[in-house]
Amino acid sequence: MDRNQIGKWLKNPGKMANKYSFHVVYFCTGCGIIEVPPSITTRWDAERFGIIPVATPRQANLFLITGYVSTKTLAAIIRTYEQMPEPKYTVAFGSCPINGGMYYDSYNTITSLDKYIPVDGYIAGCMPRPEAIFIGVTHLWKLIDMDKADGYKRYREDYVHYRANQEQILGELDWPPLFSKENL
């Protein structure tokens, strides 16, 4: 551990722990997932930064959207994202979640993800190499340090709008709103 960080640890242990213990929800949303196994295994070993995949969203704090998002997946993504406990971070992989990428004219994939759930960071490329994942994660560290990885706060604040956007695409959602009035 870096000795300079001790002060930070004492000041805000929750934030620091969130930085160094990314539990990734394992969801192969798109083809970008193919680079996740290399990055968590021998060659790149994400575990040395505390990044490990976990089984359920309840235990996770990082959501990797690994590639394009079809509408059927979007429903699952929203559900999974809402089940993650706060604070939670979303990192989108590849060009597809940014603007549709090469599927800009596909009738079944959405074009930009941050209209539906807040995205804290993007890793561009198709596909991003495993190194790019680490660069993305280190960038996310910086964002957390600067309190700019505030996607979950935005989601809470603008939930009405996010929900409206989701419903515009997916129709009536079959789960109740995450934030009711008293929950906000």
């Binding site: 551990m1 242990p13 929750g14 934030k15 620091m16 722990a17 969130n18 160094y20 213990s21 539990h23 295994t41 021998t42 070993d45 575990e47 040395r48 930064f49 505390g50 235990q59 704090n61 406990p85 706060e86 604070p87």
Partner: peptide, 19 residues
Amino acid sequence: RYGPPIYQPVIDVIRSFSQ
């Protein structure tokens, strides 16, 4: 692999508490 730092479970616990 290189593996996580040996105090990683402690960080995990702190993180869980903060969530």
